[in-house]
Design a protein around this nucleic acid. Sequence first.
DNA 1: ACAATATGTAGGAGAATTCCTACCTGTCAA
DNA 2: TTGACAGGTAGGAATTCTCCTACATATTGT
Lengths: 101, 101
Amino acid sequence: MDVFGALASPVRRELVQLLLERPRSAGELAANFSMSRPSVSEHLKVLRDAGLVSERRYGRRRLYRLEAEPFRELSQWLGPYERFWRDKLAGLRAVLEEDES
Amino acid sequence: MDVFGALASPVRRELVQLLLERPRSAGELAANFSMSRPSVSEHLKVLRDAGLVSERRYGRRRLYRLEAEPFRELSQWLGPYERFWRDKLAGLRAVLEEDES
DNA sequence: ACAATATGTAGGAGAATTCCTACCTGTCAA
DNA sequence: TTGACAGGTAGGAATTCTCCTACATATTGT
């Protein structure tokens, strides 16, 4: 599953959002959800496989942290569309000003 | 299915990319894929339901066009992560310059 | 009116996703 | 060394996704 597929799940987007604040352990992450801990662990695996997060072991804990690169790629993918909607807004503004005059 | 879910499919991302150039009819879009035309039509429905594209009928043709708003929302969602990876890059640069000195 | 064109919908098969409980593994602390 | 803790893996049920062929609907040109 690629980056887009990984972010398609609301649960995984929430995980990613939690990791944006700071790295957290698997258990701490799981505590934020009503689903079972193993299920959260599976979601973490999806995020890992997509390269969105990495994991380091500290004793019996595993700290998950956000990886920057995939988000950079996402941003690049979005670039052309961003230009698209900015142009749309600019066009809209022009029309509104036209009406005012 | 929401915007993220809709963009999880490579086929739908390609559709969206085609529509970024200009609005196109369902048939013209389908011609770009090796899968059956009805399947492409179903992908278009997913994009429609997610609000990513809209459709206007011109006779027996239906022109699909990209909608700006969902991409704007995507951009806003990405905002905090964009800051995240920019900070990472800045940090990396700082470390490299440190090494040089 | 009729055949051809453009496109969506129905129904279904097969694959993938998502969640669960049970279980296994490695680490820490007494 | 042994029990408790942190966390991943296995196997499976229910659901959703993706693709197909067949069919239905609307429009156009003759």
